[in-house]
């Protein structure tokens, strides 16, 4: 049996961390893009479109991320679409992330006083002009802190991708544990690395919250 030194364990984990980071980034970028589109759709005040967005949000917020991943990975292959663990992980994390971001952003837009819309309308700005010049610049400031805060959930969510066989931090941790039988050491290190990724994000979110709270 091969012996793993502490150095081996750590270097393997750090290597795997790259994939966790990459998956988090991909999910976050994907989730943000989809959430932007859905937010725009929701703002059109078309009640059918709003209902669809609402259903989407409820569906993906109300089911476990793991089930979404299973459906993407196993379900799609059953339907004849060959999908890699990497694609399935990105797809399901994107859906999951966007469902939460849409809700967060809706809250941010709703906190702006109705008078902002009315004043803009009374000055003759169209709906899109109002969004662009009045609503979004203010909503983005409010949304920044909770959005960065939510990215912590995305990072932690990537751990589930290990179950469909995507090799990232958690998966490598499991593999190393199987080889070394030192679960306490290995998983403590894994947890520590997740913490090292998430804690700065939390701090940054708090910093943003303070910064924009003062200026308003």
């Amino acid at each position: 049996m091969i012996q793993f030194s502490n150095y081996d364990i750590i270097s393997n984990l750090l290597f795997a961390t790259q994939w966790t980071i990459l998956l988090s980034l991909a999910a976050f970028v994907g989730g943000t893009s989809v959430a932007l589109a859905l937010t725009a759709a929701r703002l059109t005040r078309n009640s059918l479109v709003q209902k669809c967005v609402h259903l989407y949000v409820e569906l993906f917020q109300g089911t476990p991320l793991l089930m979404q991943m299973f459906l993407c990975f196993f379900g799609l292959s059953m339907l004849g679409y060959e999908i890699s663990a990497w694609s399935a992980a990105i797809l399901s994390l994107t859906l999951f992330t966007s469902a939460f971001l849409v809700e967060i952003w809706r809250g941010c837009i709703d906190t702006l006083p109705k008078g902002q819309w009315e004043a803009s309308r009374c000055l003759g700005l169209s709906f899109l002009q109002t969004l662009r010049f009045i609503i979004l610049p203010q909503a983005i400031r409010v949304a920044l802190a909770p959005t960065v805060g939510f990215s912590v959930q995305v990072v932690k969510g990537t751990a589930l991708a290990s179950i469909i066989g995507f090799v990232e931090l958690t998966k490598v941790g499991t593999m190393l544990n199987n080889a070394t039988f030192e679960p306490f050491k290995v998983f403590a290190l894994v947890a520590l690395i997740y913490f090292a990724l998430c804690y700065p994000l939390s701090l940054y979110s708090k910093h943003l919250e303070k910064k924009f709270h003062v200026s308003r």
Binding site: P113, G115, Q116, A119, R121, G124, L125, S126, I134
Partner: peptide, 23 residues
């Protein structure tokens, strides 16, 4: 919407809460 925008050209509105754009 279109009508209101035309109206805006001839009607100004001042609100109780000012509704200035804070940004």
């Amino acid at each position: 919407d279109i009508q209101v925008r035309c109206l805006a050209l001839s009607v100004g509105m001042i609100f109780q809460n000012f509704n200035l754009f804070p940004h």
